[in-house]
């Protein structure tokens, strides 16, 4: 037991028809954790298990010391931002953010002010009435961040949030994310394929290979590792 952990996976097994994944780890609160690994190494499944989209076949997930078994995704203290399709295309930006405050969209005037404020904090002042398809990819991800802000959950899962963005936008988003993290003081897990993201943002790194967590290090140590081929490939050390 580790009551001080933000997230703990204890003997978690997920069985597919042809493969099996196994996760065991404890993540300290308050940091930004990069989750890396080759495609198919189990990063998204790890997120799905934490967020409650999939139940483990064995073992359990604990968040802030509480077991999450049987808890619906929305009951977990977790916000998730996917790579794309974070917004309902037929509803305007303010409404999309509003779901973070009330899933039934019962919004008071104060709530609307909070939505506007959140949009301002992600640099989208005045975007409230626009529809998602009229925004750029980066802007859409910022809306998702704004929704996470108003939702105010201690754990934020980002599944390759910048994957679709160009390098300039990535840098802007990283800066925004760092600012928001500092203000919110939450725990962020972020799946990424980019060593740059790791270097610029992460406090620590979870590295997955073939359905196992093979490294869980502070970022400085991780960047210096040369002992594993998979990590070397990721960092470009060859």
């Amino acid at each position: 037991m580790n009551p001080g952990s933000a997230v703990e996976l204890v003997g978690v097994d997920i069985l597919y028809d042809t493969t099996a994944l196994h996760f065991d780890c404890a993540i300290a609160p308050g940091g930004i954790v990069a989750v890396a690994g080759a495609s198919g190494s189990g990063k998204s499944t790890l997120f799905h298990v934490i967020a409650g989209f999939e139940e483990p076949d064995r073992g359990e997930v604990r968040i802030q010391g509480k077991t999450m078994s049987g808890q619906a995704p929305s009951e977990r203290p977790v916000s998730v931002i996917f790579q794309d399709n974070n917004l309902f295309a037929h509803l305007d930006i303010a409404t999309n953010v509003g779901f973070g405050i009330s899933p039934s969209l019962r919004l008071s005037a104060g709530d609307r002010a909070r939505i506007d404020d959140a949009l301002g904090r992600v640099g989208l002042d005045g975007f409230g009435k626009r529809l998602p398809p009229t925004l750029s990819g980066g802007e859409r991800q910022r809306v998702a961040l704004a929704r996470a802000l108003v939702r105010h959950r201690p754990l934020l899962l980002l599944d390759e949030p910048f994957a679709a963005l160009d390098p300039g936008m990535r840098a802007g988003m990283r800066a925004l994310l760092r600012d928001l993290h500092r203000q919110e003081n939450n725990t962020i897990l972020m799946i990424t394929h980019h060593p740059d993201d790791v270097r610029a943002l992460a406090d620590s790194v979870l590295f997955l290979d073939q359905g196992r967590i093979i490294a869980h290090d502070p970022v400085e140590r991780f960047l210096e590792r040369r002992d594993m081929a998979a990590i070397n490939r990721f960092l470009g050390n060859e």
Binding site: P73, S74, S79, F82, P103
Partner: peptide, 11 residues
């Protein structure tokens, strides 16, 4: 939408 609505608890 299934995951997103589930995660936001829209029911």
């Amino acid at each position: 939408t299934d995951r997103l609505t589930a995660s936001l608890g829209i029911r």
